[in-house]
Design a protein around this nucleic acid. Structure first.
Lengths: 152, 152
DNA sequence: TTTCAATGGTGGCATATGCCAATAATTCGT
DNA sequence: ACGAATTATTGGCATATGCCACCATTGAAA
């Protein structure tokens, strides 16, 4: 009877977010499977595609992702020949990323599948509700939890 | 100009969900850091705590998580002495999980920090909005994307 | 220009998650 | 009771993500 009395983790915003992410991620991954890409990879390719040979830092910032995490995540995509990186001639610390022609083809293929997943999900969840959910999620991603000390 | 014309990934429900999860996860993790637990681990300890010596399968189902993933995630917690598993006497295939006394203490400690994170987030995002967000996320976790073939 | 702090990445290590192929323990049909 | 089908886990391998330490390059100060 304990479990009916205690609050459960349904109150934790973070836990609920992760749980829904697992669920939705599996669905998008399933639909994208025929392309051989995971949803995260497709998103990454797309982000690179819409950027203008973006820098790693720019991509990481756009995705609210740790720079080193991004680096790790790019590796399989580089290995599989979908993207390539190159140093910015003006500042050799900077590395820019772009799709290879193979990457462009693969992205196009994956986008078709993505549309299927996206549509199917919104059909079940509600297009309106999906839009407001995305808005809320965007707000969260933009929140500025003030960094602790920052003794300037 | 490409990037101002093309839709960006803000339309992808899955990508937005992941992005928000990264952001919020980092925040909760930061706040929980003094306890030495990640937010995922705290959530797991809590889930075990409110269950009645739950089975691995029950926990995985509640969290909409792959059973093997759960197994992997439990390892550090077992290693650190916060939880322990034991076979169900009635069905030795089943393994049940429970907190150790050390785990109960650690969970209590982490819960205090969790409240701080939870409160701070809701203060910024809005208590009402957080509640409806959780409701939406719960709905997603409960969706039944009909499994493909299932030729019964 | 010599030096040094700041910027941008990479590599190592650890957790989070998933899929698939064993394994072990049960259950069931005959 | 025996062997097939089922159930509950574990282990191996791969991606997703983060933190921290370290290296290369710049830009600014002395």
């Amino acid at each position: 009877m304990s479990q009916t009395t205690l609050p459960g983790l349904a109150l934790c915003n973070n836990a609920m977010l992760r749980r829904a992410t697992r669920k939705l991620g599996q669905f998008y991954d399933d639909v994208l499977a025929p392309s051989g890409l995971k949803a995260t990879q497709q998103g990454l390719l797309y982000q690179i595609h819409i950027g203008n040979e973006p820098t790693m830092g720019a991509i990481a910032a756009a995705l609210v992702m740790d720079l080193s995490a991004l680096g790790h995540t790019l590796k399989p995509l580089i290995r599989d020949g979908y993207i390539e990186t190159f140093s910015d001639p003006a500042d050799r610390r900077i590395r820019r990323v772009r799709l290879t022609s193979q990457g462009r083809i693969k992205l196009e293929e994956a986008l078709k599948l993505w549309q299927v997943a996206q549509q199917r999900f919104e059909e079940m969840f509600g297009k309106e509700q999906a839009a407001s959910l995305r808005a809320a999620l965007d707000e969260i991603a933009a929140l500025d939890f003030d960094v602790p000390p920052a003794a300037s």
